[in-house]
Design a binder for these strands. Sequence first.
DNA 1: GTGAAAGCGCTAACAG
DNA 2: CTGTTAGCGCTTTCAC
Lengths: 356, 356
Amino acid sequence: MIPTIKDVAAHAGFSIATVSRAINAPHTVNPVTLDKVRQSIDALNFRPSPLARQLRSERTRLIGVVLPTLANPVFAECLQGIDDLASAQGYRLMLMTTQYDADRERHAIETLREHRVEGMILTVADADTHPLLDELDRAGLLYVLMHNDTVRRPSVCVDNRLAAFDGVRMLIAHGHRRILMLAGTLAASDRARQRHLGYAQAMQQAGLTPAPALEVDFNADELSPSVLAHLTSGPHRPTALFCSNDLLAMVVMRGLRRARLQIPHDMSILGFDGLAMGELLSPPLASICAPNREIGCAAWQRLLARVTGTYEALGETSLALTLPHTLREGATIAAIPNLSAASPARTSGLTARPFA
Amino acid sequence: MIPTIKDVAAHAGFSIATVSRAINAPHTVNPVTLDKVRQSIDALNFRPSPLARQLRSERTRLIGVVLPTLANPVFAECLQGIDDLASAQGYRLMLMTTQYDADRERHAIETLREHRVEGMILTVADADTHPLLDELDRAGLLYVLMHNDTVRRPSVCVDNRLAAFDGVRMLIAHGHRRILMLAGTLAASDRARQRHLGYAQAMQQAGLTPAPALEVDFNADELSPSVLAHLTSGPHRPTALFCSNDLLAMVVMRGLRRARLQIPHDMSILGFDGLAMGELLSPPLASICAPNREIGCAAWQRLLARVTGTYEALGETSLALTLPHTLREGATIAAIPNLSAASPARTSGLTARPFA
DNA sequence: GTGAAAGCGCTAACAG
DNA sequence: CTGTTAGCGCTTTCAC
């Protein structure tokens, strides 16, 4: 069926050892021989079996990728970045998704180890306290984290704290005082924590009181009544929401619209991620943008450098590579006059007023 | 380092053959022996190497997935569907993306073959005329197409023609007469062709003249002036656009908004795909919905059935499995009074009028 | 420069 | 029921 190295050897009239060398170390074989072997390879359309090869040597040219989900385009964008480089460089990707589940993370990593991946690119729920990562370190298995905000391990991400800080400061600069942060299932994640930290610092620096992050069920079709109440009722209702990611922001916006709030008039919204799709929304979603595709690319490059042992040549000094974030000031943010005067009343009865 | 079957055999005091049987055919080994072996396996934390296993037997438990891109959530949604089932059933996924490039499609399929995947799930540009698929058939390699609309090969998709037909009929029922179809890079794909066919049939059935699909550059940040002119100028400008997919619809909507057209007042928009995200838009995008995740699941099930030889048990009669589409009547579609009276003039100066 | 031979970790006859 | 043995396709000493 599929030709093996034996077939090539027989066809060329040499031993399989020579064929192997012709493939893996062409300079060690007689040019004439090399040529004959190559002709046979072409004639039979022979491609060495990666399986057999990797069983023998340790080079699998296989990289594992562990992602929480593909439902969030953030990760799809990263994966695309990884795949672009990986496939161009002759590596294969083995993909596993975890749905933010610790058991599945463990299982995914184990599976990848069994398959003798040469390295892995991971996004886990919590990088700092992850025992499996320590185990990988111990086992000498190479990995690079993506989007996990930690200085303790090899990682590529934006400075989540600083990015959130910048974003919330921008909200404050637009006159907002009562700003709430919303987080989804990521609440227990390192990213969300860092983002909340940045939020809190920006608030404090402006002399405002940060609130704990409000958790929102991501997958629910509607905002829960209690959350909605939090967001819409009372004189102290927030005028701006900082959502810990864009998808959450979109879900929240829909919830608010259904509750007859207008965006940004009744509520300003700032997301995080910078999904390409956000720009297509109406109004275009303001967001703190991470260069997702580039994060994927950078993670790949770092991993490859470590795998091939050329890591030092990269000239990196720290484990964590921080990529710059950008602020996309979409139309979901309204300026609030920085006076005590109330803004004009609206039919919805909900008026965005500055903090008295 | 990593324990092998030999280590387990030595630890348990049996031969490697017995260990192998304990793993692969537990019923053929003495319960007491089985127990001892299992204890050794646990003690050493042994996991059989998939590599070695697949080199020997033909069971790699590896499935290849070839997708055009992950930038379009349609495919990410499908992939998620596949991954959910696959990982639960102990299969691994090897992912390759092609960017709709024929060379990359060829390369991806070859790579997967080398890796001895047990089967593959593919979305290719054009299924009918794809020589590689014929080759797979000849080689007896199992595959299932996703979203490729062909009856000639194993496939799972919606009835693209009928779906488009239904969608465009709905537009017509809303009073639209001048309806244009827009297509992106998919113009050369089987899906787009089928969708255009459905469009044309719906138009003809209503006594209207179908137009050729207008090609739009997907990746451009703006609609080209010529396209924009097509859409907005003259008394015969369309009142509704049928976009061959949701992402395109979103790009077009942004372009129209920038040209100061209001949706749906100045232009109705109907997409295709039913992206989850579309519902989060404002206004929510009307779309012809394919059950993407289910398509992924169904493709997986069919493939697995073929791989495990239980295909007949599925009771399928035809190669192509058609899943039902649904119509999501979002707010991007406005009704047009079916009279010759013009609708009220608007500031934009562009008034949606029925065909005179 | 080239070939013979020993495995990588496992499965699958075939004996016993 | 269990052990022995022969490979799967390839890489890699070690001789020649």
